[in-house]
Simulated assay, not measured.
Amino acid sequence: MGMTRARKQEEIQELKGRMENSEIIVLTHNVGLDAKSITDLRLEMRKNEVGFKVVKNTLAKIAAKGTSGEKIADMFAGPIGMATSQDPVAAAKVAHNFAKENEKLVILGGVYGDMILDAAGVKQLASLPSLDELRSKIIGLIQAPAQKIAQITQIPAQQLRREKMAANIEKIVDELSALTVMEAAELSKALEEKWGVTAAAAAAPVAAAGPAEAAEEKTDFDVILAAAGGNKIAVIKEVRGITGLGLKEAKDLVEGAPKPVKEGAKKDEAEEIKKKLEEAGATVELK
């Protein structure tokens, strides 16, 4: 028995909602993929906060109207699986990695914003770090010592005082927050080339100038979740274990990064918390 008209309308609305609320749509051709493999794929997608649905093409084409999916409506032919996500790298990466191990799953392409992707475009996107990881990298580069930046850009160090920059900070933050994953990757690379530093080097501590300038050794630390990384579910689980928060509160904390996870912790405890979160894939700072 086929779908009732009411059920078809529900399906169309669900598909439209997925397309409207996603940064990326990746379409796959499921050539003889058995039920177990599809279940494994769904589980892997869900682990990475990616939606996946085997679609009816006629309904998908109707649902795509007025969304980014309309740009790839002609790809809805044959046995199609649709992956959707707010993190463009996650959807591309999971689909690409699964296809490498399962020849019966073929990536057709997709759409990212206004950009139509072929299979090679999805593969290229899958090779990038996640947007959270790129943002962390950019933060590391921006935190390079002021003297280094001043030397390279030929701006006197005293002109880098906060009051001189205050008028522009909000604008800079808004512009950085609006970057797509590809733009963030290009910015990170451009900063490394312009300033002659890498994210790892920029984050390295600066040696003390001498005993007179040495600060008193800290005993209490704030553990700051700088970015959740590509596996938010694992990070949320660790945050719950560390803080005792409920699922919703822990999820809000992780998604609101940068946020403090623990304040005023002793050095050993702070380092242990940092280790647990980093093993889950997060970027963590001790302050």
Results as ranks from 00 to 15, higher is better:
Ala201Arg: 14
Val122His: 01
Asn21Leu: 06
Lys93Ser: 03
Lys267Val: 04
Gly281Met: 08
Leu15Asp: 00
Thr283Met: 08
Ala126His: 04
Gln143Trp: 14
Ile149Ala: 11
Gly256Gln: 04
Thr243His: 00
Ala209Ser: 12
Tyr112Ile: 09
Ala64Arg: 00
Leu286Phe: 07
Lys237Gly: 14
Thr243Trp: 03
Gly110Ile: 03
Gln151Val: 08
Ala150Phe: 04
Glu216Tyr: 00
Lys218Leu: 11
Val261Asp: 00
Ser130Pro: 10
Lys218Asn: 06
Ala203Gln: 14
Ala95Ser: 10
Glu193Pro: 11
Asp132Gln: 14
Lys287Pro: 11
Gln13Pro: 13
Ile242Pro: 10
Thr67Ser: 08
Gln13Thr: 15
Phe76Pro: 04
Asp222His: 03
Glu20Arg: 08
Pro258Leu: 04
Ala190Lys: 15
Thr58Phe: 14
Ala60Leu: 11
Gly229Arg: 05
Glu216Gln: 12
Glu44Phe: 03
Ala6Gln: 07
Glu170Asp: 10
Ile152Val: 15
Val26Gly: 00
Ile242Gln: 04
Ala167Gly: 15
Val239Ala: 01
Met75Phe: 12
Ile236Gly: 06
Pro156Phe: 00
Ser22Trp: 01
Ala209Cys: 08
Lys53Arg: 14
Val89Lys: 07
Leu187Lys: 05
Glu216Phe: 07
Ala184Phe: 01
Asn21Met: 10
Lys218Pro: 03
Lys266Gly: 04
Leu59Trp: 09
Ile224Ser: 05
Leu41Ala: 00
Val197Cys: 08
Ala227Arg: 07
Glu193Thr: 12
Val26Phe: 01
Lys36Ile: 13
Lys274Leu: 12
Leu15Met: 09
Asp174Asn: 11
Asp74Asn: 13
Asp132Ile: 12
Leu191Met: 15
Asp222Arg: 02
Arg46Gly: 01
Thr283Arg: 14
Lys274Ala: 12
Ser68Gly: 07
Ala202Val: 07
Lys194Phe: 09
Phe52Leu: 10
Leu277Ile: 04
Pro258Gln: 03
Phe52Asp: 05
Glu103Asp: 09
Thr39Val: 08
Leu245Cys: 00
Lys259Pro: 06
Pro79Ile: 03
Met165Gly: 08
Ser188Asn: 07
Leu277His: 02
Glu163Met: 15
Thr39Cys: 03
Gly140Thr: 02
Glu103Thr: 11
Leu131Gln: 00
Leu108Ala: 00
Leu117Ala: 06
Gly51Asn: 12
Glu186Lys: 14
Glu285Met: 14
Val50Phe: 00
Gly81His: 04
Ser85Gly: 01
Ser188Glu: 10
Glu170His: 08
Met3Glu: 06
Ala282Leu: 07
Lys287Trp: 02
Glu175Ala: 15
Gly210Met: 08
Glu255Ser: 12
Leu33Asp: 02
Leu277Tyr: 02
Gly229Asp: 02
Ile116Glu: 15
Leu253Gly: 02
Lys194Asp: 03
Ile12Ala: 03
Lys275Asn: 06
Pro129Ile: 01
Lys137Val: 01
Ala215Asp: 13
Leu160Glu: 01
Ala73Tyr: 10
Gln13Ile: 12
Glu101Trp: 05
Ala214Ser: 11
Ala214Gln: 14
Asp222Pro: 07
Val223Phe: 03
Asp74Val: 13
Phe98Cys: 03
Ile25Ser: 04
Ile236Asp: 00
Ala250Cys: 10
Asp222Phe: 02
Val54Gln: 02
Gln159Phe: 14
Asp174Pro: 01
Gln86Tyr: 03
Asn57Lys: 06
Ala126Ile: 09
Lys56Tyr: 12
Ala257Asn: 09
Met1His: 11
Thr39Phe: 14
Lys164Tyr: 14
Met75Gly: 05
Met45Phe: 13
